[in-house]
Design a binder for these strands. Sequence first.
DNA 1: AAGTGCGGCAACCGCAAAAGG
DNA 2: ACCTTTTGCGGTTGCCGCACT
Length: 319
Amino acid sequence: MGKSRTLTNSTATTSEIKRGPWTPQEDKKLFAFIQQHGHGSWRSLPKKAGLQRCGKSCRLRWRNYLNPAIKRGNFSLQEDQTIIQLHALLGNRWSAIAANLPRRTDNEIKNYWNTHLKKRLAKTGFDPVTHKPKTAILASANGDPKNLSNLSHIAQWESARLQAEARFVRQSKLIKPAPPAPQCLDFNLRTWETLMMSKSLAAGGGGGDEAGGDGRATNVVQEVGSFCNFDGVLGNNGRQFEVPKLTIPAAPDFNEVSEESGTDEYGDLFEALLLQQSYTNTGFDVVDAWTLEQCNDISADHYQNVIMSGGLKNLFMFR
DNA sequence: AAGTGCGGCAACCGCAAAAGG
DNA sequence: ACCTTTTGCGGTTGCCGCACT
């Protein structure tokens, strides 16, 4: 730390080793040399290639920039999701994450995480380290009984996460492509639970304020109702439970809502959807995946309604 | 037009693990 | 078994360019 790159170019003491940004000429030399001879020993490469760099610097430059096998440029939505999912499982093990993203380097993924994804998670109310909803963390910290449902969701998430992690380790040992794993943790189940919770609250004769004291659960039901239709029954590995199948009403004019719209009025919801998509695909047996294709079928009107009522995000955050 | 602040990213550093002698 | 060298990894820094004032 603190060890500065002010060393850069300033200390002639370290012989003639150059540091700092690479010039096109240097890139050309390194590239041509490796194309012709391979890199061999990195330590001896600079001399052979006529570069005044240390081997380590050459290696880094090749690995993160010059190597034609690497892909540069914008990350796709799929890649975003993969990174978020794998980070939830692996933490800051960038090389392991990179191994699952063909042609991407660990350095690039690390930078992308730190500059984009971390912020996106934080913005949508998730802790970028634990991947848990911040509100849930707070609730567990103050032991508020009104937020017990949060705790059960956290436990559910954590349990599933650990299973997924164990699975990941097993699969790594077997060196086999990872098949989808059978653990139910999906949007529909949570939606269902939220619905059930709300119904029981309603049946208990409470008004809206019974739901966590702020009427939110009732709002959630209303929003789910305005937003989706429920049907379908499914089983899960012998344990039967009935879970509503989520379908999104089709609407034609959703094109105006896109990822690129960024900071428009749909931005928050869009990010929540992206996040939801990321978590629901964490290698679990997703009953009815909430795909972006489905998102594209949501009408702008629905979006606006939900945004204005301000509750959907809370649903995503397991309220 | 100039100054300032901020975000993104390339590159560096130190440490750990692996490989070689 | 030990030591040295090489490679890999993750955290951090600082330059550069863009946006804003």
